[in-house]
Design a binder for these strands. Structure first.
Lengths: 238, 238
DNA sequence: GACTGGTTTTGCGCTAACGCAAACACCTGT
DNA sequence: ACAGGTGTTTGCGTTAGCGCAAAACCAGTC
C-alpha cells in the first residue's frame, strides 16, 4: 500500500478544515488502485465495499435501466469523490463507475466510514456539501430537460464538460477525455443520431472541431449563446 | 414560542439516535409558524434565513427558470425537512416553497445550524442520508425523463404522490392535497394539456376519478402496469 | 497492408407531444 | 343569484426529434 502524499489532497473540499496529522490518519485507511481505460471500478447493484476519491484520470458514472438503456449520471474529475453509497445509506451501488481513461483512485473500505465520521465529524459536513452540490446540479439537469430543447441541452452539456475537464488549446478548449456522441446523448436525454446531427451542424459553422470521441470547442462564447437562446425567443411559460 | 412536544418528532429520521434531552435542546432553538394555503414559506433567491421541518400540511418546492417556466422540485410531506440551503453550502434558497395546504412548520434560524451540527454530529449524518435519498430520487427522475414517454412518467408521478401522501378510501387512494394538471406537468416535464388528455383518457377507462385539483386512483395496480409498460415493449436500448 | 469492430454520418418517414385557441366547469366572494 | 377567476377539456395543425437503415469512417490489430 503506497503512501499517499497528504499535500496532494489536502486542498480538496472533502478534507477542508483538517490538520495534516488528521489527514494522515484518514489516508492511512485507504488503499490506492489503478483502473485501466474502459474497466469498471464498480458495477450497479454490487455490494458497496468501498468509497473512492479520484486521484487521476476520469470516471463515468452511469445507470442502466431495467430495459437496458444507459444514462450517464456524471463524469467524475480528479479530486472528486464517488461511490459514496454507504454515506447516503445504501448498501449497493446505484450506478456503474467506469474509468474512461487510465485512472488512479484512493479507496476506503465501506466499513471505515462510520468510524471515520465519528472521529472526524467534519467529514460528514464536507460530504454533505458535496452531495448537496450534486443535488443542485441534478435539479438543474431536470429543469433543463423539462424546459429546453435538445440543442440547448447539448450546448450546456459541452460547456459543463469543458469547464470541468477542458484543456485549453490555442485554437479552443478540448474536452480532456474520450467521449462519444452516444455518451453525450446519454447525458442529455436524446439519441446518438440527434447528437451527431447537431454536432455536424456546429462543425459546419466552425463552432467546434471534432473527431472520434474527441471534441474541441472553437467558439465557446458562441456556444454559450446557443445554450441560452430560447426557441422562438422571448418564449412564454410552459 | 410554543413548546413542541418531543414525542411528536422523536421518531423522524432527522432525529434518529438522539436522546430526549438532546432533542429538547435542539427543539428549543426552533420557532413554529403557520402558513396559510397558497402562501410562500420562502422564495427562490431569497437569503436563507431558516431551515424547516414540516409538522403539518404540504409544501411544494418549485424552481423558476429565467424565462419564467416553473418546475416542481418536490412535494414536502409531514415530517420532512426543507429549505436546507445552509447545510449544503448555499446562502440563498434555490427554489420557492409554497404551502399547498394550511401548514405548520418548525423553523431554525440558519445561524443555529453550525452550532447544532458541531454539538450534535448525528444531525449531519442524518441530513446526509436524507439529502442522499433526494439525490437518488432526482436521478431516478432524470432517468425517467430520458427514457420514458410522457404517459409512463405521469403514471409514475401519480404513484409516487399516492405513496407519499395518499389517503386510503374504500374506492381507491386519494392524493391528499390540492394538485392541478399544471403541477403534474411541472413534475413530469410536459404540458398542462398533455396531462389533461392523459388523465381524461384514464378516467374514461375507470383507472382514476378526478376533479378540480383532486385525483383519486381507483385502480392503482393497473396504473403500475401502465408505468412499467414500455412503448413497443421489449424495447431496445437508446 | 488488409481486416475488423466500434463510431459517426446522413437520409427518410413517422409520430408523440407541443402550441395555440376556444369553450367549458367549477368554486368563491359579493 | 351572479360575476369573475381559476382550473380543465378538447380540437386541430405543426414540428422536433425519434427510429430504422445504410453507408462511410477511423484506429488499431494480425
Amino acid at each position: 500500500m503506497a503512501k499517499v502524499d497528504t499535500s496532494l489532497v489536502a486542498h480538496l473540499p472533502l478534507f477542508a478544515g483538517f490538520k495534516p496529522e488528521e489527514l494522515e490518519e484518514i489516508l492511512r485507511e485507504a488503499r490506492s488502485a489503478r483502473y485501466a481505460k474502459n474497466t469498471a471500478v464498480f458495477e450497479q447493484g454490487e455490494d458497496a465495499h468501498s468509497f473512492f476519491l479520484l486521484l487521476h484520470g476520469h470516471v463515468r458514472a452511469a445507470k442502466t435501466t431495467p430495459t437496458g438503456e444507459q444514462i450517464v449520471v456524471r463524469y467524475v474529475s480528479t479530486g472528486e469523490t464517488f461511490g459514496l453509497a454507504m454515506a447516503i445509506g445504501l448498501t449497493q451501488y446505484p450506478a456503474t463507475a467506469t474509468a474512461v481513461d487510465d485512472s488512479v483512485v484512493l479507496a476506503w473500505p465501506t466499513g471505515t466510514w462510520p468510524r471515520l465520521v465519528q472521529k472526524f465529524p467534519g467529514l460528514a459536513t464536507n460530504t454533505l456539501q458535496t452531495v448537496g452540490a450534486r443535488l443542485q446540479e441534478t435539479h438543474t439537469r431536470v429543469v433543463e430537460m423539462s424546459t429546453q430543447q435538445v440543442e440547448q441541452r447539448v450546448a450546456h452539456a459541452l460547456l459543463r464538460l469543458a469547464k470541468q475537464s477542458g484543456k485549453k488549446l490555442d485554437h479552443g478548449i478540448e474536452i480532456d477525455f474520450p467521449i462519444s456522441r452516444q455518451d453525450i446523448a446519454q447525458m442529455t436525454g436524446t439519441t446518438l443520431h440527434t447528437v451527431s446531427r447537431i454536432l455536424s451542424g456546429w462543425e459546419q459553422l466552425g463552432l467546434i472541431e471534432s473527431g472520434r470521441q474527441r471534441i474541441i470547442l472553437r467558439e465557446p462564447h458562441k456556444i454559450v449563446v446557443l445554450a441560452e437562446q430560447h426557441p422562438e425567443d422571448g418564449g412564454a411559460a410552459r
